[in-house]
Structures are given as C-alpha cells and as structure tokens.
C-alpha cells in the first residue's frame, strides 16, 4: 500500500483551509503539550511516591495553594485566546465576497442536485472554477442534510425550512470529496459526490456545454406556467406587487413593519403568501406549498434576482447579516 493511500492530514483545497489548519495545529501543539505534561506528572508522581513498606503513610505535606490560582487563571487566558481565534475565523467564513459565482444546491434523500446560474444542472458532481469565490444557496426537499467539503474545511446544514448560504474559493484544481454530514436516513453514507475544480478556461468550456438556457430564463418560463405573470405584471396598478428591483430592497408590509426582500422572504412569499403581505395588497395569492419543487423555487428565485434589485444584494440566511453595509 502506498503512503498516498493512507493520508493522515487532509489536502488543502480552499483559501480558508490553511487558516483552519493553522488553528488546528496550534491547538494541537498547546493541548498536546499540556496533556503530555499531565501524563508525565501522573506517571512520575505515581511511581516516585508508590506505596512501599516504608511509604505506608502519605506525607502530611501539600504543594503550595498558589497553584490553584495558577491553574484556574492560566488555562482561562489560553481558552479566551482560543475563543477569539475561533470566532474570528467563523466570522471570516460567514463573510461572502461580493463577486461570488452563484450556485444553487438542493439536498434530497439521497443525492445532491446542483444548478448553475447559466442553467447547467448536475447531480452529485459540482464543477467550479479555481480562484473565484463560489456562493452556494442551499435548500432541502425533505430532511436536514449537511453539505460538507472536507478539503475546503467547510460544511453547512441544509434545512427544509429555509435557504442558507455557504461559500468557498478553491485554490487548486482537482477532484475533492462532497459528503453529507448530517444523518438523513438509509443511504446517508451514499449521499456523496465530487467537486471538480477546473481552470477558468476549462470551466468556460464546460459551461458552453448544453443547457436549457440560464437558470433565470428557466425561472421565467416557470413564472409563466404557474401564471404568476397574470398578477405580477410589473405594473404599479396590477393585482400583485412589482417584482422589478425587489431583490434586496426594503418592503413595507401591511402592518407598516419593514422587511428585507432576501432569499428567504421570497421563498416564504411564494410558499405562504399570506405570511407577509405587502402594504396595499390583499390576501389573494394562493399558496404554492407542495406545488413547486425546491429546484423550481430556486429557478424562480434566480429569475426574480435577475429582475434587478437593491445595489448590494443580500445573501440569504441570518448568518450573513453583518455583511450588509
């Protein structure tokens, strides 16, 4: 067996991988040395002061009480250092670069479906270019899954209730594992795939391969087949609100509260339109719960996004709120 068949450390495939590894290695060195110190102390003390006929009695002598303060204070300071470093990294992972390429992922028992904004669809394989941030909008059709890229050191649980996002920027070309990390039933361990990181030119060639039109244009077709366009005519006097320029903008609701029209707002407004009625509009839109698949919802989302929006489009999910300026 070759040593390459028996790795002890995962390959680094993304911009954050090195940063996560750095924290891991520093923590390993600190905790490893403290643990070894404790083991040695136990071993040495337990041998040196072992019970012998001469040493039946423990000596009535204790280490200085000051030690207590030392081993409360010093670990605490080190722990706080670990906390700050870990939190700093977590915030970095949550901050999505502006120029990210959009990819949509749907988890379902037991496969990963990926849709590109240019319209390509793939299952259990994801083609991405090297050196460019990729933002993945995540949805689940059934239970909770978790999209895990070990070589990129990131994962995110995929929820059936709302959209979440994650991002990475691959640093080298190659083929890397995709795993489902949240137990999801019978074929959980079969819900795996590969991410193919390609040179940008190869990626362009791959994109040029067949598709049924861009994701937004597929969404536009759905917009017509579901007859959304009969009310959302994008005319201010129509029965449904104007969708042009909606994405990422502030929407005033019937109760005068204001919400941001992000991915999850749009998703909810399709599935459960009565939940957040726009001011001035009646509860006339039917629910599309159970009538539009998660894949199609993402297409509709891509279409609505393509209609333009507020200057800084907001990514979905709570964790990215701090990104708004």
């Amino acid at each position: 067996m070759l040593i390459s068949d028996f790795p002890l450390f995962p390959e680094q495939g993304s911009t954050v991988a090195g940063q996560v590894d750095a924290l891991f290695i520093v923590l390993s060195v600190i905790t490893g040395s403290v643990s070894i110190l404790i083991f040695l102390l136990i071993f040495i003390l337990a041998i040196k002061y072992r019970r012998t006929p001469q040493n039946q009695l423990a000596q009535d002598q204790e280490p200085p009480q000051m030690l207590e303060a030392g081993w409360i204070g010093i670990p605490f300071v080190i722990f706080m250092g670990m906390f700050v470093w870990g939190a700093w990294l977590y915030f970095r992972l949550a901050r999505i670069p502006d120029n990210a390429l959009d990819v949509y992922a749907t988890g379902k028992q037991w496969m990963w479906k990926f849709q590109h904004s240019t319209g390509q669809r793939e299952i259990n394989t994801l083609h991405v270019p090297v050196g460019r941030p990729v933002r993945i909008t995540l949805a689940s059709e059934d239970v909770i899954h978790s999209l895990f890229f070990p070589s990129f050191r990131i994962k995110a649980d995929v929820l059936p209730s709302r959209y979440r996002t994650m991002w990475f920027q691959a640093t080298r070309t190659g083929r890397f594992h995709i795993f489902c990390a949240e137990y999801c039933g019978t074929q959980h361990s079969g819900m795996i795939g590969w991410v193919e990181v390609m040179e940008p030119t190869d990626y362009q060639k791959w994109l040029a391969g067949g598709s049924e039109g861009s994701l937004a244009s597929q969404g536009e077709k759905l917009f017509q087949t579901h007859a959304c366009n009969t009310c959302h005519t994008n005319d201010a006097t129509a029965r449904g609100p104007v969708l042009v320029g909606l994405y990422g903008s502030d929407v005033t609701l019937g109760d005068n509260s204001v919400v941001k029209a992000d991915d999850n707002y749009i998703r909810e407004s399709i599935l459960n339109p009565q939940a957040k009625l726009v001011k001035g509009f009646g509860p006339i839109m039917p629910t599309f719960q159970g009538q539009v698949s998660e894949d199609d919802l993402l297409k509709l989302l891509a279409y609505i996004k393509s209609l333009g929006g507020a200057p800084a489009p907001s990514p979905a999910g709570t964790p990215q709120k701090e990104q708004r300026r």
């Binding site: 404790i38 002061y49 002598q61």
Partner: peptide, 23 residues
C-alpha cells in the same frame, strides 16, 4: 470555554494529590 475551567481544576487537583502520597 468557561465550562472547561472547572474540569481542568479537577484534573490538576487529582494530579497534585499524588505529590508526596502513598500511591
């Protein structure tokens, strides 16, 4: 990280008990 502190206290105290003991 706070909850780690009292656990560490215990480990250190058990170890220190071995000092000049009859093990």
């Amino acid at each position: 990280y706070f909850v780690a502190v009292p656990s560490a206290i215990k480990v250190f105290n058990w170890t220190a008990t071995l000092y000049k003991a009859s093990v």
